[in-house]
Write a protein that binds this DNA or RNA. Structure first.
Lengths: 146, 146
DNA sequence: TCAAATTAGTTAGCGTAGCTAACTATATTT
DNA sequence: AAATATAGTTAGCTACGCTAACTAATTTGA
């Protein structure tokens, strides 16, 4: 009992630090897309989760409606998403990624992931395998979390 | 050769996603400190790495000098850091964390890490162990990565 | 030695991204 | 029909990133 907790704390500390520094490195690839991380992330939700209302998108991104309103406005201005009226409720908007949006997402995602993968291939097969197990665990943990 | 690369890509993808979502969760603890992540991170560098000039601090945080200038100004206004003149070079400033700054950092860090650790202790010992190995690997990888 | 170049940091001004409060417009409930 | 609730926007604040242009101090080197 007094054995697990300090260990979890130590892992939490290093994991937190690693997440911060890892994102700081891959974020450098983003400038090439011309869009910021919040827009790319929202676009990703639309591409992989299908059309959404503004409120749903805000909830998915854990952000308040006014924030998502501006993110969507930026994406729409650049024609990466298309906004249509909900036929059942005139208050709602239906937001969907355009083909252009899907292409942007694929490009940006590919660049970030490839920059990271270029580092990962320097690892030994064992190390990569350990990392693979860890991301599976993290994926499950994050799904349960909130 | 065509075996390692796609695997690294898959791990990179999930790792990237996990880092984004993990930070989004722990960041919620930050509001209680009253300071943003960039200030807390810079303060952390000062606490664990000792006094620094503005340029050194900017380099450590991978940020441009004007950005760090504003971060330091905010920390100084709240008396979390103390700025003194370099006796050898009047252009330079020596920035050090105050006792108040150290206390804030410890508080904020503790809250974020504890929120994360509270999730990690739900894992099995094996899973926690896998995660422990992964963060060690990531730590080394990030050190080499510019 | 003294003018030119370099270096440290700031200021001004821009964009993105987060928030709350207050607003409009539409739906729903009573 | 009026009151209430819901969806989204607007206005205005803060933080945090950048570049360009600036001041002040130090080095360089002719």
């Amino acid at each position: 009992m007094s054995q697990e907790y300090p260990d979890a704390l130590a892992v939490a500390d290093k994991l937190h630090s690693a997440a911060i520094h890892l994102l700081r490195r891959v974020r450098k690839q983003d400038v090439a897309t011309g869009e910021g991380p919040a827009r790319l992330s929202a676009l990703s939700v639309l591409v992989f989760g299908g059309p959404k209302t503004l409120k749903e998108l805000a909830a998915a991104e854990q952000v308040k409606p006014p924030t998502m309103s501006r993110i969507v406005a930026g994406l729409a201005r650049s024609r990466f998403v298309h906004i249509s009226n909900d036929p059942e409720d005139a208050r709602r908007m239906n937001i969907r990624a355009t083909a252009r949006g899907i292409r942007l997402l694929q490009k940006g995602r590919r660049m970030r992931i490839e920059a990271l993968a270029a580092r990962l291939i320097r690892l030994s097969p064992d190390e990569l395998n350990d990392l693979g197990k860890a991301v599976e665990i993290l994926g499950r943990l994050l799904q349960e979390w909130c």
